[in-house]
Design a protein around this nucleic acid. Structure first.
Length: 907
RNA sequence: GCGGGGGUGCCGGAGUGGUCAAACGGGACAGGCUUAGGACCUGUUGGCUUAGUGCCUCCGAGGGUUCGAAUCCCUUCCCCCGCACCA
């Protein structure tokens, strides 16, 4: 009863504990540089140490560990490290709520999480652990900051910034999602503050261009980054204001529409907004600007209703000299382009809406191929220009360049590129982060801390309850001496965005204990770039963009010699239950610990990898977990049971195995091939599916009477090896049950040996495909122009082997010849037949024997075919009279299907 | 709106031109083993027929290409995810 069940589970838990201890004490997962071996850097996004791991982590690590183990067995020198992204607000919140010091809270959590990771049996090199809140790490954060400052990539500026009232700190643009804080979802407010920025925009173009190099990144991540960088090329043009000396500079990507401009719009923040407004309209315009400024960016963009007000002033279209009314409106953003646009309602839907609402004229100047009368909506496509002076008749693409040329030669504008990407705001008004290493001196201004004085340490004497930045409560921290003049000075109290920490941690893993710098160049050049990076999609534009930027910036500081940090990226899907993301409020959380404690880590890992392909959402299913447990238990008893009566230490495979042997040997090799290919393609779910099918077949085979020991051992050995990346504990146990002394974790990954695959027992898939090829080769070579009938006869013995190979499914003759049936039964045109033949002829070498009819036709074919096959193993046999096809095929069984051609059209 | 990804059997999920009525798992049904079983083993699991097989229907919907399509092309409907007034 449940005793047995519990016992089984107990055995598994025991096994896991045993092997985890052995792995640890033997140190087999330690990694060193080895120039003789190819390296493989397998990396998971390091976790934030909140109280516990969740299923997403379990999934992340199951993927990474399977891959790391696989590569290790394949002989790669694998770097597979783990660390903790340990700075961050939750630690501070804990301090405020429960009075626990952030440091203690963080390290307690790390301890818990590390325990969980160890219980998963992950093959990390723990000697390389990186914890970002440790001085030996954040010292280098500060060092890098100073280098960037020196290089001009860091600056301080007063600017409107995103303020999260709940976290009481500012945020980078990337960290505002739909107007809300990425972490706590509070609505963001806008504040004008003096803050530290990193000039990521200096790399906008390269960050965009190099996306093309990232062949092994998911398309959607690249698209998200592309959109975020938001490059657009166009032209900036000055529109003179009528009766004044000012110009309004606009940016447009569609200068070809300039003859269609009917009004102009400034954003409410535009410096000219009020000054060019006529006196009689000043009050109204003022009121409007005030109103819009009060709204947050979110409110302004959410309502979608376009609102504006006429300034009474006019601009002059420099190409047409027409007067153009100037409006102020809420839909023009000051932060993008020049904060002013030329409005072409005929060819821009926003301008169209606005023109309709305020009764402004619409002037069409671009016409599509088929003109459709009056415009019901803006036509935003390309077309032919009309009513455009000398440019009339040109295509949009041509006109764009010609008009820009004209504008440049007139000296009223120039080509320009604008980006949506903004500089990265890294100041945080929080305690639990890396202090920004600068000092404010009344005499000397902003002064960087001297390199030898790093790190600027976080003080202990802070008060978390007062609401502001806790660092400001530490007088010991704040008051300091100016590094330049030695006078009294004040420390910067802002700390760095924790995304700064995570932008280079993967480099630190290469030299985790280096004291002379953030990393050693040699180490990094050996290990980097990361070959496989695995993590959640939520970092598509935050972490992944910053890390790419860091790589480029450090490269330009002469510290790296590559451009991109992550060669291959896998974004895992979420783990959901009952169709919804696991969350405490929904009560659908499954605790990884619970699963591991009940079923063991192997079951949890296998289930999570098998149930969905890695990038897809994974629907949690308790039944599925049980199913996986059942499977592993079956595997265990298979090994256990067989080893009770047989010794599998040595596998003696005959060079010429008997049929029974060769069946399971072939099947084993097929499994090796498939599993290897699946893992290489990150298709872990399919790899496990194949292992399951293979296991089933071994089971069937073992139960048969005339099993061959050597072959069974061979199959079992390989099964254990294939299982090792996924269920490492069980695989180790099986390995040792079979009498091996060494770890399976460091054993060699099995190699697919084609020569061990006996074609007699190849699968239906290969068989039929080859048959089709063979048939067509025969058709071609025989000179038959219009075959009427082809029969494929499969001898019984052969059929039986195949049938067993596909697990009891009888292979019918129907399946074999149905492929050709339709093509050949009706009057197929010779050309069609020829095409067919052409399409499938690849390699006739598999053909073994062709049986021809005994009539004249057969003789002719035989003559035609004679000598056409390079290998003499193709036997041409003339059918004996009175023999049925089946009998014939059976009687002369060559180990391959015989093909019998009957008849063959003349002409 | 723009961009990305999808719609497959009771369910999850494979399958990208011919092994396909469709891998693997779950569930369901039947049988075996058992005192019993939620444990294990075997079989069945689109329909109709025969049970050696044959036929029909099927991979969101509708067309098309092809000797042949779940797979390629077009149209259309629906779902998910990102960005969202970026000029």
């Amino acid at each position: 009863m449940s005793d047995e069940k519990e016992n089984n589970r107990g055995v598994f838990l025991e096994i896991e504990e045993k092997w985890q201890e052995r792995w640890e004490s033997s140190g087999i997962f330690r990694t060193e540089i080895d120039d003789k071996r190819e390296k493989f850097y397998c990396l998971e996004m390091f976790p934030y140490p909140s109280s516990k791991l969740h299923m997403g982590h379990l999934r992340n690590y199951s993927i990474g560990d399977a891959l790391a183990r696989f590569k290790r067995m394949q002989g790669f020198n694998v770097l597979y490290p783990m660390g903790y992204d340990a700075f961050g607000l939750p630690a501070e919140n804990a301090a405020m709520k429960h009075g626990i010091k952030p440091h203690k809270w963080t390290f307690d959590n790390i301890k818990t999480i590390k325990g969980q990771q160890k219980r998963m049996g992950l093959s990390y090199d723990w000697g390389r652990e990186v914890i970002t809140c440790r001085e030996d790490y954040y010292k280098w954060n500060q060092w890098i900051f100073l280098k960037l400052l020196e290089k001009g990539l860091v600056y301080k500026k007063e600017a409107p910034v995103n303020w999260c009232p709940k976290c009481r700190t500012v945020l980078a643009n990337e960290q505002v999602h739909e107007g809300k804080c990425w972490r706590c979802s509070s609505p963001i407010e806008e504040k004008k503050l003096s803050q530290w920025f990193i000039k990521i925009t200096a790399y906008a173009d390269e960050l965009l261009e190099d996306l093309k190099k990232l062949k092994d990144w998911p398309e959607r991540v690249k698209v998200m980054q592309e959109n975020w960088i938001g490059k657009s090329s166009g032209v900036e043009i000055n529109f003179p204001v009528k009766g004044k000396k000012e110009n309004i500079r606009i940016f447009t990507t569609r200068p070809d529409t300039i003859y269609g401009v009917t009004f102009m719009v400034l954003s409410p923040e535009h410096p000219l907004a009020l000054s060019l407004t006529t006196d009689e309209r000043k009050d109204e315009v003022k009121r409007f600007i005030e109103k819009v400024k009060k709204e947050t960016t979110k409110e302004r963009t959410e309502g979608k209703e376009k609102e504006g007000v006429f300034t009474g002033a006019y601009a002059i279209n420099p190409l047409t000299n027409e007067d153009i009314p100037i409006f102020i409106a809420n839909f023009v953003l000051y932060s993008y382009g020049t904060g002013a646009v030329m409005a072409v309602p005929a060819h821009d839907s926003r301008d169209f809406d606005f023109a309709k609402k305020y009764g402004i004229g619409i002037k069409q100047v671009i016409y599509p191929e088929e003109s459709k009368g009056e415009l019901k909506e803006a036509f935003e496509g390309e077309g032919t220009l009309k009513n455009s002076g000398e440019f009339t008749g040109m295509k949009s693409s041509e006109a764009i360049n010609k008009i820009i040329d004209r504008i440049e030669s007139m000296g009223i504008g120039k080509r320009a590129v604008h980006y949506k990407l903004r500089d990265w705001l890294i100041s945080r008004q929080r305690y639990w982060g890396t202090p920004i290493p600068v000092v404010y001196c009344d005499k000397c201004g902003i002064v960087p801390v001297k390199e030898e004085e790093l790190p600027v340490k976080l003080p202990e004497d802070v008060n978390f309850s007062e609401g502001g930045n806790p660092l400001e409560t530490s007088s010991l921290f704040i008051s300091t001496k100016c590094p330049v003049c030695g006078g009294d000075a004040r420390r910067e109290t802002d700390t760095m965005d924790t995304f700064f920490d995570s932008s280079w941690y993967f480099l630190r893993y290469c030299s985790p204990t280096e004291e002379a710098g953030p990393f050693r160049k040699d180490d990094v050049n050996y290990w980097m770039p990361v070959d496989q990076y695995i993590g959640g999609i939520e970092h598509a534009v935050m972490h992944l963009l910053y890390a790419r930027f860091f790589t480029k910036a450090l490269r330009d500081l002469g510290m790296l010699n590559f451009d991109e940090p992550f060669t291959k990226l896998l974004t895992q899907g979420m783990v959901v239950k009952d169709g919804a993301k696991m969350s405490k409020s929904l009560g659908n959380v499954v605790d990884p610990d619970e699963i591991i404690n009940v079923y063991g880590a192997d079951t949890a890992r296998m289930f999570i990898l098998f149930t969905a392909s890695p990038e897809k959402e994974l629907e949690w299913s308790d039944r599925g977990v049980k199913g996986m447990f059942r499977f592993l238990r079956r595997v265990y008893s298979l090994f256990k049971g067989y080893s009770e009566t047989h010794s599998c230490l040595e596998t003696h495979l005959n060079k010429n195995p008997g049929f029974n042997e060769s069946y399971i040997v072939s099947r084993t090799n097929l499994a090796i091939k498939r599993v290897t290919d699946f893992i290489s393609g990150s298709r872990f779910n399919l790899a496990i599916g194949e292992i399951m099918a293979f296991t089933g077949e071994i089971g069937n085979f073992v139960n048969e009477e005339n099993k061959a020991e050597g072959a069974v051992c061979y199959a079992l050995r390989n099964l254990a090896l294939l299982l090792a990346p996924f269920a490492p504990h069980l695989a180790e146990e099986a390995w040792s049950i079979m009498g091996n002394d060494a770890f399976i974790s460091t054993a060699e990954w099995p190699e697919y040996k084609e020569e061990l695959v006996n074609e007699k027992v190849m699968f239906k898939r290969e068989m039929v495909r080859n048959l089709v090829e063979d048939i067509n080769k025969v058709v071609e070579l025989s000179g038959i122009k219009k075959p009427e009938k082809i029969r494929i006869i499969i001898a019984d013995e052969w059929k039986r082997r195949v049938a067993r190979a596909i697990r009891g499914m009888e292979l019918s003759k129907k399946n074999m010849h149905v492929i050709m049936k339709k093509a050949l039964k009706e009057n197929v045109e010779p050309e069609a037949a020829a095409r067919l033949v052409q399409k499938y002829i690849k390699d006739p070498s598999r053909l073994h024997k062709i049986i021809l009819s005994s009539d004249e036709e057969g003789e002719t074919i035989k003559e035609n075919l004679q000598g056409k096959f390079e290998r003499d193993k193709v036997e041409l046999v003339i059918e004996k009279e009175g023999e049925s096809g089946e009998k014939k095929a059976a009687g002369s069984l060559p180990g391959k299907p015989a093909i019998i051609i009957e008849g063959g059209g003349k002409n």
